[in-house]
Design a protein around this nucleic acid. Structure first.
Lengths: 216, 216
DNA sequence: CGATCAAAGATCCTATAGGATCCCTCGCCA
DNA sequence: TGGCGAGGGATCCTATAGGATCTTTGATCG
């Protein structure tokens, strides 16, 4: 772990702690000791405290007064269903809006490039896959032109760190094809088709993830 | 202003600062001096810093490194349109889900009670109206059973402190009737009607608010 | 008279120290 | 042997002080 340094320590600490949680360097449900974390990052407890306060707003940690912070436990099956439901509300609407508004050549090319997903090769395959998948969904939400919609999609995404460990190989290839189907509908300027393609993608992804809960 | 005291100062400070902003005791766009705020609340700067970090996640203040915090400026017309668009995505979906799930007698009675809105009498009429309106929308979102959906609706609502000052009298009465139409559809277990009623309510409220931007 | 540069003031940012609270372990008792 | 209570340790929470940075004001030069 590198000592954090930039303009404001808080931002660095925030990013560092977020990464620790997302990569499961801090086990879900584990206590987070402020002093120990500060020593590990070679900073004082104050910016750590500030970063944790922000992370609590993101839902990645929770605070019990006079006891301490805790990394948020993994999503339960029910919470996962809620998350999917929420994405089904937001993301098809975003896709429809992008299709309705239309994209210029550069935007479309960029989106199409991000629709591709890395294969199952390489050491950090799962991390690379989820990171690229996140980029695609975030970019699409951003192109909706509605900043609040974009923020909401990004915020939800943080909870998917759940699947960093157990990850079904079935995702590779299929997800990329579904992404391209969404891009095609967007490129055609067909809001209904874009919305439907996104809905199908999300429900399919949900079904692919479900076995995870069986095995717990 | 009372000195803040409870279990954790941070929570109290958070609520206090939030109230300051919502009530326009701190003008939108104004700089927020951490030390001055700490003295005013009779606490040290540390919990103030922590509270401000949380408020930044809520979008009520923004931070410029090495410069300080600033109360978020009032929504522009474009941002207001984005907010409405976002509510149109979330809240009709929430209403439909509540209607589909059905409510027991107590829940329905509670919701119907909150649909009523205080009239234009009294000193703090605007504050009472908006507070009650918020309660209705929050309660409905909460009854959807989806916590993330509820949180998203509540989070958006914070940005409506915009209208604490200039408030059209046309809202009184009309809004309550629209609320009851939503409750009726929910009580009838008709998701499509509930969704439509909410959509109509939001678009009508949007139109009632629009003159505010003409007068700036 | 306007623009540029420098210095002073204010503010934020970080670190360290002390008080209060909670959790856990050990001993005692029924 | 199991339950209860007290003490110690750890941790959080708050406060204060010092260093770094930015903004602003004033003076100087063109």
């Amino acid at each position: 772990m590198q000592p954090a340094r930039r303009i404001t320590l808080t931002d660095d600490v925030y990013a560092a702690v977020r990464a620790l949680i997302m990569d499961h360097d801090v086990q879900p449900g584990a206590r987070i000791n402020i002093d120990a974390l500060a020593r590990r990052l070679a900073v004082s407890p104050t910016p750590v405290r500030e970063a944790l306060a922000r992370l609590e707003s993101d839902g990645l940690v929770s605070k019990k007064p006079l006891v301490g912070y805790t990394a948020t436990p993994l999503l339960t099956r029910a919470e996962f269903e809620e998350l999917v439901e929420m994405r089904l509300i937001l993301e098809p609407a975003a896709a429809a809006r992008v299709a309705a508004a239309g994209l210029d050549g550069a935007e479309l090319a960029g989106l199409r490039a991000e629709a591709d997903l890395p294969g199952p090769e390489g050491a950090a395959a799962v991390a690379a896959f989820t990171a690229q998948d996140a980029r695609f969904h975030h970019t699409l939400a951003g192109l909706s032109g509605n900043r609040m919609l974009h923020d909401a999609v990004v915020r939800l995404r943080a909870h998917l760190h759940l699947f960093r460990l157990h990850f079904p190989a079935a995702h590779y290839g299929v997800s990329a094809r579904e992404h391209h189907r969404i891009v095609d509908a967007v490129a055609a300027g067909d809001p209904a088709a874009a919305s439907a393609a996104m809905r199908d993608h999300l429900t399919a992804a949900r079904d692919r993830h479900l076995p995870f809960f069986e095995s717990r």
